[in-house]
Simulated assay, not measured.
Amino acid sequence: MALDQYQEEEEEGMSFLDHLEALRWHLLRSISAILILSVAAFIAKGFVFGIVILGPSKVDFITYRWLCNVSDYFGMAALCIDELPFTIQSRQMTGQFTMHMTSSFVVGFIAAFPFVFWEIWRFISPGLYDQEKNAARGAVFFVSLLFFLGAAFGYYILSPLSINFLSNYQLDPSILNEFDITSYVSTLTMLVLASAIMFQLPVVVYFLAMSGLVTSGMLRSYRRHAIVVILVLAAVITPPDVISQILIAMPILVLYEAGIQIAKRLEKKRALKREEEDIADAMGDRD
């Protein structure tokens, strides 16, 4: 506690160049963490690429097995995905090595995200007021939690269903689906990271509501507009099938409603605090 207080007092008296130097060290530590975990992912090629990256392309993936179990239980054979009619190829000489590097970096970034955000928060937090720091307590935990929940949703739900749709879509039976490794990894990465970012909506709403830029009434009044925007975003970040768009839009709509409740709760706390201050002022005037 004493060390943190000393560091905060030291940073308060820092010049602009000192702040740049501090930012440089925060960025260096963040980049170092990403690189270390990326190297670890690069070395663990068999697990990271063979199991994690290529997992949704295999019929024994946990999501497909779960859907088959559900289909057996309810007697709905259409739910079971027991065939993925496509092959993954590398049509460029450097394709596999490039994708090995790219996928390792993405895995390293995802694994290092809590530390990276913690470093960013350490740089930002000294400039906040005590009231703002108290209100934002636990930000690293909740941001990291929502990030991993979004990444898990994109990896276990959105990606498998999107890959199944795209692998089974054919203009003509004579056209075979032979996807390039670059296309496959890019699609998987986009779906996972887009879901992880979109799941930060409650945090964004929380800070906007805390600063007074949005209110629960404003969010409710613009609900219809938000639905349209969410559907458009879902159409942009997902493959062109309705199921994937609905899958990504539904949790975002739920998170939007959660944001409304968060803003409403902040407003109640703010109103209660004003009442307590008015009562304290009234008591002071009597004295």
Results as ranks from 00 to 15, higher is better:
S38I: 03
K133Q: 08
V59G: 06
W25P: 06
K264W: 01
V232N: 13
E83K: 14
F123K: 08
I36L: 12
L37N: 02
A194T: 07
P160W: 00
R220P: 09
M93V: 12
G13F: 10
T63F: 12
V242A: 13
S15T: 14
D60F: 02
E21H: 06
A196F: 01
P173I: 13
R224V: 09
A226I: 03
A271W: 04
F207H: 08
A112S: 13
A249V: 09
R286H: 11
L231Y: 06
A152Y: 03
L79F: 06
L188G: 00
H26N: 02
N164I: 01
M93L: 13
R65V: 10
V59I: 08
I181M: 02
V106N: 05
S174I: 12
L145V: 09
I230D: 07
F179I: 12
L191A: 10
Q5P: 06
T238M: 05
V192W: 04
I51E: 12
F61L: 03
A78W: 08
S167R: 15
L79D: 05
V214K: 13
L233K: 01
L17K: 12
V48T: 14
M99C: 07
A258H: 02
I227Q: 11
I62K: 00
R274S: 04
E267G: 14
D60Y: 03
W25Q: 05
L266P: 11
S71G: 15
D82M: 07
H100F: 09
P240M: 15
S103E: 04
I53V: 15
A139K: 02
K133H: 09
A258Y: 03
A135R: 05
L27T: 01
